[in-house]
Amino acid sequence: MPQQIDTWVVLAFCSAIFMIGLAGVLIRRNILVILMSVELMLNAVNLTFVTFSKALHHMGGQMSVFFIITVAAAESAVGLGLVIAMFRTLRSVDTDEIQLLRE
């Protein structure tokens, strides 16, 4: 029987992925990469849910994951659609150049 990984290790791993995603959202200028970072953050949260579900023997966490995966799929579709529309009108996917609401 393989050794069970400690819960805190997994949680630390999730936090690391979440922080990487957050950093990606805040730092990167390419909107595609930002979207990918958002996905990273979402999946970090999914993993957290699953971990707690296993640790606490409660199926609520795993149920939430399915919801999040479904919503995230829809969100990516909408997000990518927006990115394409943005690129068609502005010829750019750089967030520094899309600040139309400022003035």
Binding site: V25, L26, R29, I34, T95, D96, I98, Q99, L100, R102
Partner: peptide, 14 residues
């Protein structure tokens, strides 16, 4: 405060 930059807003949010 209203820079128009998405990242700044995201930082504020965070």
């Amino acid at each position: 405060m209203q820079t128009g930059s998405i990242q700044v807003y995201a930082l504020m949010l965070a």
